[in-house]
Simulated scan of single mutants.
Amino acid sequence: MKHRRLGRTALQVSEICLGTMNFGPLTSREESFTILNDALEAGVNFIDTADQYGGRLGVGATERLLGEWLAQDPTRRARIVLATKVHEPMSEDINDRGLSARHIQRACDASLKRLGVDHIDLYQMHHIDRAAPVEEILQAMDRLIAQGKITYVGSSNFPGWAIARFNEKALASHRLGLVCEQSLYNLVERRAELEVLPACQAYGVGVIAWSPLAGGLLAGTSTDPSGRRSAAAVRDAAGGHADRLADFTTLCTELGQAPGVVAIAWLLHQPGITSAIVGPRRRDQFAALLRAPGLGLDESALARLDAIFPGCGAAPEAYAW
């Protein structure tokens, strides 16, 4: 497994980030633990979760499961870069959500308790909160850093302008600011190339790509729609990309690689990408995708992928002159 710096920090994280959204509600405790053990053995040191994950088991269930796994072997904590998120509703309480300083503090304490750890390596804002002043958020994060409860701050699903605004505010007060952005990015969905990726590159913000297989569309004929997207949703989405997906499958066959492996390898060839999040439901799915970091795509293959799934182009030229 190869590793890359997390944005402009000195921290090294694996090119594959193990996403845990399915752990608990769709993946049993036993299989989740097996996948986590496999990840460590394969050199994957980057594990991502969120306080809201838990599905039918209720919010916080996935963090509790991770806490149980960490408690089985105290040495595991030092071997992983642990990331979680804050923002999504945790109850019906109007203040038990968002990015107010009050909620950030309380949510962090709750995540630490569920995970059974004394600090979180990467604390990410799960979504932009338009009601929360940047100064309030930065002050809350500074307090958590001073308390030793978090080490780095990241964002997720932020637009380019918000990434720039947060880091300009941080720079003005000599703070580190955002070190990474977790963004929707894959061969099918490339809008991040317009503003988000350029903003991240300008500020030294690492990009962690989520949904690298476009909800299963890029996983090939073995797509398992029982996870994040229903069978009907995958089928409907595939219908809108039938010709492209057929060309993509042909290329993957010529390369002798599974479509999911090629899709993730393509991501890891893109400028500014730190890691790709894979969210397996089964052990075999995870094992198959671990081959992606070792797949080198030559200029010809990359050009064909761009022709099959053309990007948006550069901003503002993509929509102006």
Results as ranks from 00 to 15, higher is better:
Ala214Val: 05
Thr9Arg: 05
Asp109Glu: 15
Ala170Thr: 08
Ile80Tyr: 08
Leu57Glu: 12
Gly160Cys: 09
Ala146Lys: 08
Lys149Asp: 01
Pro293Thr: 09
Thr75Tyr: 05
Ala170Asp: 09
Ile128Ser: 13
Arg191Val: 13
Ala242Asp: 10
Ala314Met: 05
Gly148Ile: 10
Arg304Phe: 13
Ile94Cys: 06
His103Ile: 03
Ser111Met: 09
Thr75His: 15
Glu317Arg: 15
Leu267Gln: 01
Glu63Ile: 04
Gln270Asn: 10
Pro133Ala: 09
Phe46Pro: 00
Ala50Cys: 13
Ala287Phe: 01
Asp118Pro: 08
His119Leu: 09
Arg114Glu: 04
Gly206Cys: 06
Cys180Ala: 11
Glu136Ile: 04
Ala314Ile: 11
Gly19Val: 02
Leu18Ala: 00
Ser100Val: 01
Gly98Leu: 11
Val44His: 00
Asp284Pro: 00
Met1Lys: 04
Leu184Glu: 09
His119Tyr: 14
Ala146Trp: 04
Gln52Glu: 12
Ser183Phe: 02
Ser183Thr: 13
Leu99Gly: 03
Leu290Pro: 02
Glu31Tyr: 04
Leu171Pro: 00
Arg64Val: 13
Asp142Tyr: 06
Leu255Ala: 15
Gly43Gln: 03
Leu217Ile: 07
Ala276Leu: 03
Pro133His: 02
Ile308Lys: 15
Trp69Glu: 03
Phe166Gly: 01
Lys85Asp: 05
His174Ala: 15
Ala50His: 05
Gly206Asn: 01
Arg8Asn: 14
Ile120Thr: 05
Ser100Phe: 02
Arg64Ala: 15
Ser275Thr: 11
Gly148Thr: 10
Asp51Tyr: 06
Arg143Asn: 06
His126Asn: 02
Val44Met: 01
Ile94Gln: 14
Leu268Ile: 04
Ala231Asp: 14
Ile35Lys: 00
Arg106Met: 07
Glu254His: 07
Cys200Pro: 08
Val44Gly: 00
Arg165Ala: 14
Thr49Ser: 15
Arg229Ala: 13
Ala301Gln: 06
Pro310Leu: 15
Leu194Met: 13
Arg5Lys: 14
Ile47Trp: 12
Leu36Tyr: 06
Asn45Tyr: 04
Ala219Ser: 14
Gly227Ala: 09
Gly294Glu: 06
Ile120Gly: 10
Ile80Gln: 05
Gly256Met: 11
Ala199Met: 13
Leu255His: 11
Thr27Glu: 00
Thr27Leu: 00
Leu289Trp: 03
Leu255Asn: 09
Pro259Thr: 07
Leu171Ser: 13
Gly311Ser: 03
Phe248Ile: 04
Tyr185Phe: 10
